[in-house]
Amino acid sequence: MLKKIFKKSEPTHEEFRLVYDMFYSRVYRDVYFITKDCHLAQDALQETFVKAYKHMNRLEDKERMGAWISTIATRTAIDVLRKRKGAREVLTEDIMIQEKNMEEKGSDTLHIVEANLVREELLESINEISAEYREVILLRYIHELSIREIAHSLNINESTVKTRLHRARKKIKEKVQHDPKRQWIGGE
């Protein structure tokens, strides 16, 4: 068993480049989804691959590399946000979403196709929730990781993952429902 543990070593330059090529787009999309800023996303992307290089020898199941690297990416993106924007703007789990005033849009909104409006407002509300909530939404709904996988990867409890998902979904729904110009999602 020890032999198995110790035989692992850091990846070669070629191996690392292969991983980079395979996951570059995925990682950039992940960190952009969290930061919504191309400069912060770029910083987070670079840090993600540096961390991945250092810890790749710890990855047991290489087939899960995508999920593994995505969790590094989301964690790193949140860290980058914290450093660059200040803790006030990166809300912790227990802090609710930022209450930003929803300004009425111009009358041209009326002419936007229904489906586009729905989509726009949903995405707008997702971008307003805290980075930690976006992280679990990304891992659960885009990368389709199980609750257990998310909890394991982020080193948090399954309850915490579920609570974040519940809260995120509820907040997004509330946000859209309380938007005076659009009440497209019906009741329970």
Partner: peptide, 14 residues
């Protein structure tokens, strides 16, 4: 919608 949003990214400066 999430998946569409996920794929709509602003290009990296580098």
């Amino acid at each position: 919608y999430l998946k569409e949003d996920y794929h709509e990214v602003e290009e990296s400066p580098h």
